[in-house]
């Protein structure tokens, strides 16, 4: 058995701030790099598959609870989605995704007919899988955060 230690609040906060930062602070750079690459790879892999539409705190709040565990990165992507890609409906004044035949007025953010939509809304399995990738990234990062704050006893290598 190895690596048993007391609660490390600084490492916990670092892990919350950025995936792998808690382990990097503890000096385990290789493990931190693998965690960072894995979590962010899954998170941005989900966005690559389903588009930025898969990170949506307003339309898919339950999924976003899981995605938010990736940390500030998830909130930054969601803010970008809400502020730069969604349009304001001229009738209701509510924020929504642009329809395929609509564009976005960059000055006001309102939907305009005949333009190019800021993003295409993903549908079906592609949307489901993209959302799942990003949510699993957050859930795995929760394990990472707990491990950074409350270092676990890892299995030592079996004697050869």
């Amino acid at each position: 058995m190895t690596e048993s230690a007391a609660f490390r609040p600084l490492h916990l906060l670092a892990a919350i701030a950025f995936p792998g930062a808690g382990h990097a602070l503890a000096g385990d750079i290789r493990r931190a790099a693998l965690i960072c690459g894995g979590v962010l790879g899954l998170f941005f892999g989900g966005i690559f598959i389903g588009g930025i539409d898969v990170i949506d705190r307003r339309e898919d709040p339950v999924w976003f609870y899981g995605q938010a565990l990736v940390g500030p990165v998830a909130f930054a992507v969601d803010t970008l989605h809400q502020k730069r890609f969604k349009v304001i409906d001229p009738q209701t004044g509510a924020s929504r995704s642009a329809y395929p035949t609509e564009g976005r007025d960059p000055a006001t953010g309102r939907a305009v007919q005949g333009g190019t939509p800021p993003n295409q809304k993903s549908i079906g399995k592609v949307n489901e899988l993209g959302t799942l990738y990003a949510t699993l990234a957050g859930m795995l990062n929760l394990i990472v955060i707990i491990d950074a704050g409350f270092p676990s006893r890892r299995k030592a290598a079996a004697p050869s």
């Binding site: 493990r31 693998l34 965690i35 690459g37 894995g38 979590v39 790879g41 899954l42 892999g45 690559f48 598959i49 389903g50 588009g51 930025i52 539409d53 890609f85 800021p118 993003n119 295409q120 993903s122 549908i123 079906g124 399995k125 592609v126 949307n127 899988l129 993209g130 799942l132 990738y133 699993l136 990234a137 795995l140 990062n141 394990i143 990472v144 491990d147 676990s152």
Partner: peptide, 28 residues
């Protein structure tokens, strides 16, 4: 920004998903 067109081969996406999960979980 836009989704990729993998509606006919969506099931293949389990391979990178499983790999990503394994990379993070085993790193811990």
């Amino acid at each position: 920004i836009d989704p990729i067109d993998v509606h006919r081969a969506w099931y293949l996406l389990i391979v990178p998903l499983a790999l990503g999960i394994s990379i993070v979980y085993k790193a811990v």
